[in-house]
Amino acid sequence: MSTGGREEAPSAGQAATQEAVEAVESVGRSAIQLVEDVGGIALMGLQTAVWLFRPPYRLKNLVAQLDYIGVGSIFVVGITGLFTGMVFAVQTYHAFSLFDAQGLVGATVALSLSRELAPVFAGLMVTARVGSAIATELGSMRVSEQIDALATMAVDPLQYLVVPRVVACVAMMPVLTMLFDTVGIMGAYLVAVFGMGVDAATFLGRIRTWVDPEDILGGLIKAAVFGLLISLIACYKGYNAKGGAKGVGTATNEAVVMGSVTVLVVDYFLSLLLASFWSTHAARGPG
């Protein structure tokens, strides 16, 4: 039955129901999007792995990305590492002075940096600097149809654009983490030895006593994993950007946020995994 061509305004109850439904739909869409993203990133990772070993090997692109990701991040990672080590030395010095154990400052800073802080902070810095750049660059290429043009020219965009970035990021993250470790411990040394009066031999001796090579290796492994994830996320978001300039911005934003969160979340699970791995190799346990 016709109402005479006029639509009735929804009641308050209907409006509330509509909002609730939309909220649930939003959650559902986010979950679906997350699954889609994870799946897409995984597929991109697999394709990257495949294209990594297929010629032509575009070393020039790789070197350029190594330069941009690694050498270009030296300053920001170095500054971050220096002040992280210095701040950590100040705080641990005051904490350990309560127990008259200031000699443990070096060991504590070195352990923290090598196991956790260096890979995580370096990962965050690379996410902020490199991940955003990759997403923006690839997003711009996508919305300007440059990627489509590559495909038209029988150049696989994944091999040309993604593989060098992923490889460079995986390779440079451990290097930057090593830089972070070194500069951070140097900063802690400066503060503790010259600023707080901790004995230099004690500082270094405690590092040698308490820090094991496994700690350094674990940090570097984490950094490589972080590099892989950061680059894949950034490439995925940029590669699949749509909607013009706004879409590029959204892709960049999502790449940084997702990359940062992923670094922190994955760090936890990697820590558990590595601890279990080292414990197993330390042959400690029942039996």
Binding site: D67, V71, A171, M178, I216
Partner: peptide
């Protein structure tokens, strides 16, 4: 630049690793 940076990082790693080994 890349090579130098990588070499320096590898040197730092070897030095650090040796130091704590």
């Amino acid at each position: 630049k890349v090579g130098l940076f990588v070499l320096v990082a590898i040197g730092a790693f070897i030095g650090f690793y040796t130091f704590v080994h």
